[in-house]
Structures are given as C-alpha cells and as structure tokens.
Amino acid sequence: MELIGRNFEMEKIERYIRHEHHCLIYGIKGIGKTRLLKEIRKKYFHRTLLIQTPITPRELLSDISNFLRIEHKRSRREQMEKILSELRKRREKLIFLIDDFDEITTETRKILNKILSIVILIATSEKDVRLNFREKIELVPLKWHESKQMAMRLLGNETRAQVINLIATKSEGIPGVIFQLCKDYKIASELGELKSRRDLHMLMNEQKPCVWKRINIIPLPALVFLSYLFLVGRYLLYGIGRFEDAFLIAIFGYATMAVARLLWIERNIDE
C-alpha cells in the first residue's frame, strides 16, 4: 500500500540524504516509523542496508561485510579495517537504516561511531536518543482526512462512512491503530458479528484508547505541596487547625515520595 500523509517527512529525509546528514525519526509506537524506513529503502535500494535490532557487534559487522561483499576476517579489528577501507572507496555514501535504535547496545554503538563519518545513518526510535544526529524528525498522527483515506484503502471504497469515520476518530490518526481497527472490523464483519451500529461501536471501544501526547498539568508531587498550601492558608486566613500539621503533612509526603523513588530505582537496577 502507498504511504499516506508522510510526503513532507519523506521530502525532508531525501534532502538530508542529499546533504549527507544523519537523521533520527522518532515517535510513539505504531506511528509509522518502520513504514517510513521501508519507503526509504525502496527508494534507495541500491545503497541502503537495513539493520534490525537487537543486534550484536559481530552480527552488525557480518551484515555490513555481506552487503559490501567482503570476505570475513578472523579478528574483529581486521574486519573493521577492511570495512572502513571499502566504505571509503565508495563514490556514494552508504545509507544505514536502523530500526529501533534505542535497543542498540553500547558495543554496537561504538562500532557505529567509528563509521559514522563515512555513512549516512537514518534511525528510528520511540524516544529521542543521544547520538550525533544532526537532524531529527518527530512523526505526528495523521490528519483526519488522511486517516479516513488510509481506512478506505484498507477496507475498500464501498465501506460505510460510519465505519470509516469511527476508525479515523478512534485511532486518533495513529496508522498502527488504524491498521489494527480495520483488521478487527474485517474479522468481525466476516463472522457476522456486526448487526447494528451499537455492535460496531462496541467493537471499536474494545481497542485500548490511544494517546499521542499527554500533558500533565499538575504532577503528583504537587499534591503534597498543594495540601501543605491548603493547610497553611486555612490556618493563616481563618485560624483553623495547627500550623505544625501542615509541616507534618509536607515532611511525611516528601519522605514517602523519596522512599518510593529509591525503591523504584532499586527495582529498575534489579530488572
């Protein structure tokens, strides 16, 4: 299926490739990062190497060697030198496409750092990562009409407008969710489960609500501060309660949060 709603991003990436800039494509799960990467691969097939993560340093070197048709050396250093000399010889820089860059290990990253100046790196990640990426593109959800267009392509033009609208709305423009909802709809309609409009809505509501960007107006730690402020204010304005209670609340609250934080860190280290 043709790529929908990513023309602007595609043009940007083409420009970065022309200027030989490394680029990071990031965005939430299902937003279409891998799909965009595949589109780049299709366009620059002769000079792209798609690297799937997780990958060990040995596997990475082996993948590059296979692509460059270099014989495998015994030591990693020799192999690396051979790869570097081969990459330098090329008239056009090779494009490395790395899916899920955040899953790459430190060792693999070191190897990539060595060849960074002689290749163009285009990577995808769920979050912004620390590496020398000159350009960064954040993928945003598709627009309403683009979501509808995608759903229409997946289900066919004869599908009811109700279904298309509902899929476009429920997915919030996230291509992965549109795909999943269309698949669910197809299966349910083939099984004859969708007899009424209510059935359709119930089916779509089974999907976990997707959230693109959440903005936390009042963070949880502020709760302690607010309760402290409330108690102090109550005491100062109306003379209700005791001033010490407010301090106790604040101390107890912050201590609890500190312990919780420590436990959280410990749990993460254990994992």
Partner: peptide, 8 residues
C-alpha cells in the same frame, strides 16, 4: 490533539 491529565 493534546490530552491533559492531572496527578499523572
């Protein structure tokens, strides 16, 4: 399209 929450 932003969703606002309080206390996470």
């Amino acid at each position: 399209n932003y969703r606002f929450v309080i206390f996470d």
